[in-house]
Design a protein around this nucleic acid. Structure first.
Lengths: 267, 267
DNA sequence: TCAACTTTGTGCAAGCGTTCACAAGCGGTA
DNA sequence: TACCGCTTGTGAACGCTTGCACAAAGTTGA
């Protein structure tokens, strides 16, 4: 087992001096979640949130296998992290382990789900029904994990009304009304780069506050909107960097020629 | 403009005490790149590498628009980062700016491309020709950016020989020979989760050292293999967390009820 | 009941990455 | 040539994240 990187490893990139909306911890509590849970959630590092999602998936698998209890060491191994880090991550959401025993899998699952806000359904709208949009609309992983795809949009009038993955495509001009009607809380942009910013603006004005962007563009959004991006080209280029670095290291360490151009080197 | 997170923001997650192969900077140099460039490349933080890829895309757009010179402030704005960070990132690859003027766009492009190893072509193999695999095979962004898709694999014999995006699908059993023949350096896993680890093992034994994993599984690989993962479910759950946190904050700040369940709040 | 063993939860220190702030350097202008 | 304004490059401070190490707390078995 070795380096495992990527996805949303949590370093925040805020332009300007924008701070994460420092609301004072006052006022009468009136939510479904108790005050201390809210307080905790606010303090969880972004990096830890990403890992919690991974732990959750591993734990879900455990539940299916009938595992009822798991130690930090085991869970950490399965999730590909250090056990100390895992325990610290879990401590952010509370102390739900039993010393000398480990964690009750189901208890942990329910607490992580609560912290991640998965007790509520989050309707998703996919914009741009090209290759990727099709794949996303048909992707079974969304609905099964509490993210029902509630709407599809495209600019092509020929697609309007055509069902994809069981949901009829709406025209992009109807974003505002349809998103409001179906209470969409997450927008997924799978359009060509040229259209992405315009689509993003429409989603924002339709009240969508969370966006997952597959278009290779840096979106400009208001402060209160959360954007995450998945950029395949960037991922490939990071891998390319490592290929190059490796080849260079090999060229520097190994004597003359070996390790250059396709010869496999295993340090 | 506001929070822009995600993708490969560069926090390294290494299990155990694995260190990034600390090869001593000695031996006679024999690569295409000069020694100081190699030395630099080794020291670039992962997070900076991810951003360099973004800068590169922005700069490519600039070239097309005929821009010849750009200041750190402008480029930073377009890339959605702080200008100090941008300058530091660029300083990792060398001093190619002119004080009082800015950076020559084309010079910068060529240096970033060199550092990212984009002067060499990196052949890509996509494994798993389902919805996502189809989308990836047809995705124009890969070949145009120096990542030609050289091979497709699936376990379904009915697919074998069928061309997708112009490339015939090979059977998964032929991974080793085909990857070697076509000098594949990057493997993309787009299979169902159950198959991912097995596919990964085959890719590794075929000599592939860089893997982009779309399957929602934590892959176990040897130290010398670089894995990046793109996990849609995790991305969605991180967004979900922010939706929840926001709703909670609103519930705490706003008096009674407003902001809960779908009512749009703009701080 | 007590001792031995196991595993959690966390204070603390080290390591990275980000941000600040400013000296150094370059082009333009008189 | 000397000055001025602008922009880069970077040392240093800061803050977040990680990893270590250990006390606290629970279980098991005699």
């Amino acid at each position: 087992m070795a380096a495992q990187r990527g996805e949303g490893d949590g370093v925040v990139t805020r332009p300007q001096g924008t701070s994460p909306a420092g609301t004072s911890p006052q006022g009468t509590t009136n939510s479904e979640a108790p005050a201390d849970v809210r307080e905790r959630a606010r303090a969880i590092p972004e990096a830890a949130v990403a890992r919690l999602a991974v732990y959750l998936r591993v734990l879900s698998g455990m539940v299916e296998q009938g595992v009822t209890t798991i130690s930090s060491e085991e869970l950490a191994g399965a999730a590909g992290v250090n056990s100390a880090k895992l325990r610290k991550d879990l401590s952010y959401i509370g102390s739900y382990g039993t010393r000398g025993v480990g964690y009750d899998v189901e208890v942990l699952v329910s607490h992580i789900e609560r912290i991640l806000g998965l007790t509520r359904k989050h309707s998703v709208a996919v914009v741009g029904i090209g290759n990727l949009g099709h794949a996303l609309a048909n992707y079974g992983g969304f609905p099964s994990r509490g993210f029902p795809v509630a709407a599809l949009f495209d600019i092509d009038p020929d697609l309007t009304g055509v069902p994809v993955g069981g949901i009829p495509v709406d025209h992009i001009d109807d974003i505002t009304t349809v998103c409001a009607e179906r209470e969409v809380s997450i927008g997924v942009i799978a359009t060509p780069p040229q259209a992405a910013q315009a689509v993003c603006d429409r989603l924002v004005s339709a009240g969508v506050q969370c966006i997952l962007n597959f278009a290779p563009v840096v979106l400009q959004v208001p402060d209160y909107v959360e954007v995450r991006k998945v950029d395949l080209a960037v991922e490939m280029q990071i891998l390319s960097f490592h290929v190059a670095r490796r080849a260079d290291e090999a060229a520097g360490d190994v004597v003359n020629g070996i390790g250059v151009d396709g010869v496999v080197i295993r340090p």
